[in-house]
């Protein structure tokens, strides 16, 4: 049989999915063992047991200076920024996507502009944002909005344009106005695509969040990582990296489940 037609059965598929994880973790454990055997005070590759101890400590013991438990206060601070930025960007993406996708006049006026600003590297704007909005929360949220907003606008306008013209014509013959078509045909059709686009832009959103926190913040996951970098505290950094990855996975999973529950008509088999 050709390889394109061979499919793993369920147990084999699970084992195959685990293999890369096992290899990477195994390689780390071995490397860490070798290095620690040579030099027990080595800080670059802490033993897994030490990473777990550190993680438990970060999640349970209050910081001596602030009195708060670092992992939770950092997570809370970061998630607030991330969710605010992503929500605002999604709202902007949806509104402008509908405008550009549905109205030829809005398309003529806005599409080239949206294409142009999506080429501006957001991180290059970060200093400007700090100057304009100060070092507080606003600049970090705006960075996320500036970072993923243009992508969302372009993606959503494309999705609106892809709505079969038959449906828009049909709605007109049923007496719908432009506004009613936007509300009752285009909006429900692109909402599941909005969730897809937001899922894709969560990665960049984390990137911009951590970059902003690394430069100026009093708390947050990115702040902590870059703070302890000075002491070469690899155990803390690795704990946080795993934790951030887990949070990102949870967010993605939540959006996927939400989409499946809310837009059953959209999920006819295919899925990523």
């Amino acid at each position: 049989m050709r390889w394109i037609n061979r499919r793993p059965r369920r147990p084999a598929a699970i084992i195959l999915a685990l293999v890369p994880f096992v290899i990477v973790i195994g390689a780390y454990v071995i490397a860490s063992d070798i290095r620690l055997a040579e030099n027990p005070s080595d800080r670059l590759t802490p033993a897994p047991s030490q990473i777990i101890d550190t993680f438990v400590m970060l999640a349970t013991e209050p910081d001596r200076r602030t009195g708060r438990i670092p992992l939770w206060s950092d997570t809370w601070a970061s998630l607030q920024r991330l969710l605010a930025g992503v929500a605002i960007a999604a709202g902007i993406g949806l509104v402008f996507g509908l405008l550009i996708g549905l109205l030829p006049f809005a398309r003529a006026g806005l599409a080239p502009f949206a294409a142009a600003i999506s080429l501006v590297p957001p991180l290059a704007l970060l200093p400007i944002l700090f100057i304009v909005f100060g070092l507080g929360e606003t600049a970090k949220i705006v960075l996320i909005v500036v970072g993923i907003g243009p992508f969302l606008i372009r993606d959503l306008s494309q999705r609106v344009l892809e709505i079969p013209s038959e449906l828009l014509v049909k709605a007109q013959t049923l007496g719908a106005s432009t506004w009613q078509i936007a509300l009752r045909v285009a909006l429900p059709q692109v909402l599941p695509r909005l969730v897809q686009a937001v899922r894709l832009s969560l990665g960049p959103a984390w990137l911009f969040l951590i970059a902003a926190e690394a430069i100026a913040a009093e708390g947050g996951l990115g702040y902590r990582i870059f703070l302890v970098r000075r002491y070469l505290a690899m155990d803390i950094i690795l704990s946080y990296v795993v934790w951030i990855t887990f949070l990102a996975f949870l967010l993605d999973y939540a959006l996927k489940s939400l989409s499946r529950a809310a837009f059953a008509w959209f999920h006819g088999g295919e899925d990523l």
């Binding site: 038959e166 449906l167 049923l174 506004w179 009752r184 045909v185």
Partner: peptide, 27 residues
Amino acid sequence: RYSVFPHLTVRDNLIFAAEIAASRTLG
């Protein structure tokens, strides 16, 4: 193809026009 609204149930496809006519603002 693409003649009915895939996001509406069969019944809601049929009342679409009436709903549109009944409510200008929200449709």
